[in-house]
Design a binder for these strands. Structure first.
Length: 997
DNA sequence: CTCGTGCATGGTT
DNA sequence: CAACCATGCACGA
């Protein structure tokens, strides 16, 4: 390119001029944010839009607009946004193009401003390749393209009727050239700025480097309402893509591409098929519709309908991976796609389901279901042979990669981790990379500004990091397990994430929770499959909260707020943008001065720094300029362990909780599916919901005739559900079944347990009720659950009878209906459920056997001290109620209780005709829930006053009678036990009532 | 009985 | 609503 080396001072930026002038005129904006300084003459030329003439006086590359004949220089940084490549060859100036077409920018040519050299930690964003992938998969070179109608760029160039087109492309695509002219410092600097999102994007009229030119005005006109700058502000996809593009481009500049058109620069080896329509020259991020480059490509992709890859498969290869991949050769790495491993992908079956479009686009075409053996290389260079094949499926195909287990194991991947597929050019070798879910944060750190994609000097840097933190946790969580028992937790996590993202966006004035959305979509598809265990939920919460706390306000000054397409963006001066800071512990030192404790990332020692210091997210002792003595990791830590403990009470607490829930996890590990669910139901609180660490949802397959809650639901949970009052056959039989069970149990229990209940349990229950620890700390601390677990564990295992009981009762639609009815009251939920912030999860849960509503109920009821006993026994197993009551405090009773629980296992008499269907049928008077709770509270007070939980107190208010919907009074005979007679939340009432016998 | 294979099912988008 | 795809499951070895 003929552009000059960077001029400085008073030398005209135009290398062909280099005139020394006293006073320079501003030219186009350069990447550094500065403006090209031009002499008067060149400045005038620039102003007149004739700069190309002056700039490229002796250069080739001038072409005529096919429509108007206007001469346009193709390829220089100041002109290449001013024309459109025509599919048939030739160019059209932007003005003509606008007249006849809606422009589709050429994703192959990113904005020169983003043609950056490889920047460690800078080019790893999820969206790096979005425009590329988003614009359409790269056709397998030896194979028919997925896009029958389109050709890839290589082909196109070979076919180009006008060789010039290729030349032009070449020139254009080497957009980094001008950038290469910058000094290293400048380059670095600008990279930093760009990547940090702090570099101000030029406002219209002062486009960034390379955007000025002879047709500047024209181009700007073409920008209409949405200059490309705004495209970054509004597209999640744009900026980062270029980073990587550049990475490979610049890096591989010298590479000769034997298999690819030699004249085609590396960008084209990214194999972006040329759009079907016209191409904007250069980065051409602007189209007449004001759409962004990426959005445009997306639209274009959408226009081709199914040909577009889903965003979740867009490769987000990291620079590290890229470097590793290309380490040994001069090859060009073409990231193809990636996929987060599902449980089945990571399972032992060894089949990795490939996204159809990706498979068809990037892998060789196969017509035989047997498929082909496909050689693939991992990051270590080790070669693997997989069988790439498909299954016929619904008139379609399902592509799988078989035999991946060894490879996945060698990479130590598990569900939730991501495998990436790339291709090394020119060899065409396939490379399989990976990314651990737990590494997302670190691996992607630094690219966040890119991921934000707006490129505007917003606080995107921070916001994306926030988002990332959520994602990280989510990814972590999803990675760990998908137990069917953790739906609540998972949902909560989602809610949490959503909330956090919203918060972040809100706090940052960022209205685009884009990444969240993307991730959400991924997660969304796994909603009922990927579960987050509670442990992770806790972590998630902590992380999100922490993330919120990490925001460091702008150091000074208010941001400039710009509005782009209705979204407000805060624009900060370079040093002012809010940042994500290192988490610190604010404290007061002996002198009464505010300080903060910060932990070195390397040595984990805590160092003291002044309160007003904003610390980077990565902080090490060497950054401790405030305390030179402790600016090395070898220096001793000031803080004593005790002191630190004092400083970290909440952390301790959190870890304590986690520990507790871990214990529970161990217990539940052996349980599965409904068993686990049933077991979980007895756990008192949602916050400590344990989860099977192993990922798999085992949802029983329901068969015709099955009347479980799932099967009662309409398909997909959509449509009308069976209401409480429903008297369809299914509901009738289910109710009958439930009642029969209850009656049977009443009978037997009344005989067997009358004594035990009265003599053993009651005093202990009373004692327990009065036990402040148990009552007053119902949810917060999982530790108090351990005794119960201890009980169970002491037995060596959970009593299978008990589990079966749980199972059977959980399957009882009445039970679920009850749960649902009470949960339906969102108000109630919002009061009671602290960990589940998103009421919408209810909808999801309702339709599943995994339905954790019952768990919520448990948790809810735990909130109410009055219901404590019931809470503990909230599983609707009446036998278990007593068992639990006694076992909690009296291990000796355990066996007895268990044995009493077992006789009913699985026995249902559907022919029985209970008398009081009405009473047993759980009405859904959610409005009375609060009343009930109030009454329960009153009762509890009275109850405590009496010093006994077993007294024959009658429920004076007759709540049980007045709230038939919420409270189940099984029969008069049970009224001897007031505890069970008083109003209870549905879940417990329903389950406990029969127990009274 | 276990494992692998191929297809079917159903949730999600 | 159709396509996709995660996973279940039948069946045979």
């Amino acid at each position: 390119m003929s552009s000059s080396a960077a001029a400085s001072g008073n030398v005209c930026f135009n290398s062909n001029c280099k005139e020394f002038v006293e006073k320079t005129r501003k030219g186009w904006r350069r990447r550094t944010g500065e403006f090209a300084e031009l002499c008067d003459r060149c400045g005038s030329a620039y102003d007149d839009g004739k700069f190309c003439d002056a700039f490229h006086l002796n250069s080739s590359g001038w072409r005529s607009c096919e429509s108007c004949g206007k001469q346009i220089h193709c390829g220089c940084i100041v002109s290449f946004h001013t024309f459109v490549l025509l599919d048939a060859g030739g160019i059209e100036c932007i003005a003509c193009a606008r007249k006849s077409f809606i422009l589709t920018p050429n994703p192959a040519w990113p904005p020169p401003s983003l043609f950056l050299p490889l920047q460690p930690e800078r080019i790893k964003d999820v969206n790096n390749w979005n425009p590329i992938a988003g614009s359409g998969p790269v056709p397998w070179r030896q194979a028919p393209s997925l896009f029958n109608g389109s050709t890839n760029q290589n082909e196109l160039q070979h076919k180009a009727p006008f060789p010039e087109a290729t030349v032009s492309i070449d020139r254009l695509s080497l957009g980094e050239r001008p950038f290469a002219l910058l000094s290293d410092n400048n380059r670095k600097d600008s990279c930093e700025k760009l990547m940090n999102g702090k570099l101000k994007i030029g406002v219209p009229g002062t486009p960034e480097d390379g955007y000025a030119g002879s047709n500047r005005d024209e181009a700007h006109k073409s920008c209409l309402s949405a200059p490309w700058q705004s495209s970054y502000a509004n597209s999640e996809l744009s900026a980062p893509s270029f980073c990587l593009t550049v990475g490979s481009a610049s890096k591989n500049e010298p590479t000769v591409h034997s298999k690819v058109s030699v004249s085609v620069p590396q960008q084209t080896t990214l194999s972006i098929p040329l759009p079907l329509g016209k191409q904007l020259g250069g980065h051409a991020t602007v189209d007449s519709a004001g759409e962004t480059q990426v959005r445009s490509s997306k639209i274009r992709g959408d226009g081709r309908g199914k040909n577009q890859l889903l965003p979740r498969y867009w490769p987000r290869i990291t620079d590290q991976e890229l470097r590793r991949l290309s380490e040994d050769s001069n090859s060009v790495i073409t990231p193809l796609f990636e996929k987060m491993l599902s449980a089945s992908d990571a399972g032992r079956i060894g089949r990795l389901v490939l996204p159809k479009k990706c498979a068809e686009a990037y892998f060789p075409p196969i017509s035989n279901p047997e498929g082909l053996p496909l050689k693939m290389q991992d990051l270590k260079g080790k070669e693997w042979m997989f069988q790439f094949r498909f299954w016929p499926n619904n008139n379609s195909r399902m592509y799988v990669l078989e035999g991946v287990t060894p490879c996945i194991q060698s990479m130590q991947l598990q569900a939730g981790d991501t495998v990436t597929f790339s291709r090394i050019e020119p060899e065409g070798k396939l490379v399989m990379g990976c990314r651990k879910a737990s590494n997302i944060l670190t691996a992607d750190q630094g690219s966040e500004a890119c991921s934000n994609g707006n490129g505007v000097a917003t606080n995107g840097n921070a916001s994306t990091k926030h988002t990332k933190s959520s994602e990280e946790v989510l990814a972590n969580s999803t990675k760990k397990g998908f137990s069917s028992t953790t739906l609540v937790a998972a949902t909560s996590a989602r809610a949490e994430i959503k909330m956090s993202d919203d918060l972040v966006n809100e706090s940052l004035g960022n209205n685009r929770p884009i990444r969240c959305k993307r991730k959400g979509s991924t997660m969304g598809s796994k909603r009922k499959r990927m579960r987050i265990d509670n442990d992770n939920l806790v972590e998630l919460k902590v992380t999100v909260v922490q993330a919120q706390g990490l925001m460091r306000p702008p150091s000074s000054g208010a941001p400039t707020v710009i509005v782009i397409e209705g979204c407000e963006f805060e624009e900060y001066e370079q040093e002012d943008a809010p940042i994500i800071g290192r988490p610190t512990i604010p404290h007061m030192d002996q002198l009464g001065e505010k300080i903060q404790w910060v932990q070195c990332e390397d040595c984990f020692k805590w160092r003291k720094v002044p309160d007003n210091v904003d610390l980077p997210s990565r902080w090490t002792c060497s950054d401790n300029s405030c305390d030179p003595e402790r600016s090395v990791c070898s220096a001793a830590q000031e803080l004593t362990a005790d002191h630190l403990r004092d400083l970290l009470p909440h952390i301790n607490k959190a870890s304590k909780k986690r520990k507790a829930s871990k214990q529970e996890m161990d217990l539940v590990e052996t349980l599965d599916g409904l068993d686990a669910l049933a077991h979980l139901a007895i756990l008192e609180e949602g916050e400590t919901l344990p989860a099977s660490p192993q990922a798999t949802t085992k949802h029983p397959r329901h068969r015709p005739g099955c009347t479980c809650i799932v099967c009662i639901q309409p398909p997909s949970g959509k449509g009308p559900k069976h209401k409480q009052s429903c008297d369809c056959n299914v509901c009738k039989s289910v109710k009958r079944r439930f009642k029969t069970l209850m009656l049977k149990r009443e009978k037997k229990l009344s005989e067997k347990e009358a004594e035990a209940t009265c003599q053993k349990l009651q005093p202990q229950s009373a004692g327990q009720l009065l036990d402040g620890d148990d009552i007053q700390e119902p949810i917060d601390d999982a530790v108090h659950l351990s005794p119960q677990h201890g009980e169970l564990n002491n037995e060596g295992s959970v009593d299978p009878n008990y589990l079966n009981e749980k199972k059977s009762s959980v399957e009882d639609p009445n039970y679920f209906d009850e749960k649902k009815s009470s949960v339906d009251d969102t108000n109630y939920l919002s009061e009671k459920i602290s960990s589940v912030d998103d009421p919408s999860y209810l909808n999801e849960k309702e339709s599943s056997v995994d339905d954790p509503n019952c768990l919520n109920e448990k948790k809810l009821s735990v909130d109410d001290p009055n219901c404590l006993n019931e809470k503990k026994s909230a599983v609707d197993d009446p036998n278990y109620v007593d068992e639990r009551k006694s076992s909690v405090d009296d291990p000796n009773c355990l066996n007895e209780k268990k044995s009493s629980a077992s006789p009913f296992k699985g026995e249902f008499d559907l022919n029985a005709k209970p008398d009081r269907d009405d009473e047993l049928s759980p009405g859904s008077d959610s409005g009375s829930m609060m009343r009930m709770i109030k009454r329960a509270a009153e009762q509890y007070v009275r109850h405590c006053d009496n010093g006994s939980s077993v007294g024959n107190q009658r429920d004076g208010d007759g709540a049980g009678e007045t709230n038939p919907g919420n409270c189940v009074i099984v029969s008069g005979s049970h009224q001897a036990d007031v505890d069970h007679n008083r109003p209870l939340p549905i879940s417990t009432a329903a389950s406990l009532a029969p127990n009274d016998q």
